[in-house]
Design a protein around this nucleic acid. Sequence first.
DNA 1: GAGTGTCG
DNA 2: CCTT
Length: 204
Amino acid sequence: MTAPPEGFRHLPGHFPPDAQASLLEAVRAVVARAPLYVPTLPRSGKEMSVRMTNCGALGWVTDAARGYRYQATHPVTGEPWPSIPGILLDLWAEVSGYPHPPEACLINFYSATAKMGQHQDRDETDFAAPVVSVSLGDDCLFRIGGTKRTDSTVSLRLRSGDVAVLGGESRLAFHGVDRIYPDTSTLLKNGGRINLTLRRVTKP
DNA sequence: GAGTGTCG
DNA sequence: CCTT
């Protein structure tokens, strides 16, 4: 594939450095109440390489016993997820083209060696809304294909402050993160990458 | 056989 | 290739 699928939009540098710092502060406040944990895959129970948490009414979680799902509480603490920071609600209103607020914001932390295999975001009931993604920290190599696993893919480098929107055909496109480029950003003192994905889960 | 796995 |  020479071009990303229809409906995919990459907005490089959407957030300037000061806004990235504000986002990071908001993420830290979420993580203080909803700690990062190690998700495990359905069936195999294999640990994923990313560390994960959420904010919003619903959070995406996975474990060996119950598989992929959305739930209102943190799987380790049992507490409700913190609310989605205003700056992210504003982003959603600006770029989603969807007239209702997001319900979930998945927060993935990638160490220098973390990866995310090709997958579809398909645990939501409402695919009319796009998935809106924000990158913070080190650059990554993001790869996106079509709605079939065998479709050809394109790779692009996502940098801190970039926003990506998966709408239209690309809403159900296979995508993943092949690698992190260490020490390409100074936003996170200890390196790594944070990805925020905003999603509408239920039909309004 | 499939996988939000791993490895090359 | 490994695991369920």
